[in-house]
């Protein structure tokens, strides 16, 4: 499903964000991406929805080589990928419902479908009762759950999360990770970048470990 083949990313200042990284994540697997700050986790994640591009090597998603894709094809690719960020990326002046509905509106769903799907997604993350609330009225944990609901509302094939529990307390972090596990259980391919080794160790999930932009090693599930 997600395939990196000799991928390097060199920035304009000459620094390598990624260097010769190769791995393959089959469909429906859940994988953690770990490494210290600056190890290249975010750079790697940004390449999957074609927000960044390798300077050499190939990134293939669902068998499609992203470098051979045209710009106008990116939106279709991105509609198949749910992304959860540490800093939420929510629209503060809109309500919870409107934030979660965004990917469906962009994909051209009708209003009835949007209502049905948004309510289902919010129900899944336990925020159905707060659908009319403004984002700024929510706590950090609730905002992150809105973020997850928005990433999943479009029923993506791939879910990417970049430090999704960075600002949350351990209990909430565990709750969020459990939700990711639930989505993995229904066939979604999940890739979570995190440096919270303590939390990651509680899950029997393979780990791709990056170190200074290079693939250090891959730890299979234990």
């Amino acid at each position: 499903m997600i395939e990196f083949d000799g991928v390097s990313r060199r920035f304009s200042n000459g620094h390598f964000g990624l260097q010769d990284v190769s791995f393959h994540i089959p469909e429906g697997r859940m994988v953690f991406l770990t490494g210290h700050s600056g190890s290249g986790k975010s750079t790697l994640l940004r390449m999957i929805p074609a927000l960044d591009h390798p300077t050499s090597g190939q990134v293939r998603i669902g068998g499609h080589d992203l470098q051979k894709m045209r710009h106008h094809q990116y939106p279709k690719l991105r509609r198949q990928i749910g992304v959860v960020f540490q800093d939420h990326h929510l629209l503060p002046d809109r309500r919870v419902f409107d934030n979660v509905a965004l990917p469906l509106q962009v994909s051209g769903f009708g209003s009835k479908d949007i209502r049905r799907r948004v309510e289902a997604a919010l129900d899944k993350v336990g925020l159905l009762a707060r659908q009319r609330a403004l984002i700024e009225e929510l706590s950090g944990g609730e905002q992150q759950r809105v973020n997850i609901a928005r990433a999943l509302v479009n029923r993506p094939k791939i879910l990417l999360a970049d430090e999704p529990t960075g600002n949350l307390d351990p209990e909430l972090s565990r709750d969020i990770f459990n939700q990711f596990s639930d989505f993995h259980a229904v066939g979604v391919t999940v890739l979570i970048a995190s440096h919270d080794l303590h939390l990651l160790k509680t899950y029997a999930v393979p780990r791709i470990v990056l170190n200074q932009g290079r693939l250090s090693h891959i730890e299979e599930a234990f």
């Binding site: 089959p26 669902g62 198949q80 051209g108 393979p206 891959i218």
Partner: peptide
């Protein structure tokens, strides 16, 4: 990590088109 070549994107692209 095993090698596999599922082609889900193609399938989902068709869904988007039909929609």
């Amino acid at each position: 990590m095993s090698r596999a070549s599922p082609n889900n994107l193609t399938a989902t692209k068709t869904n988007t088109k039909s929609l």
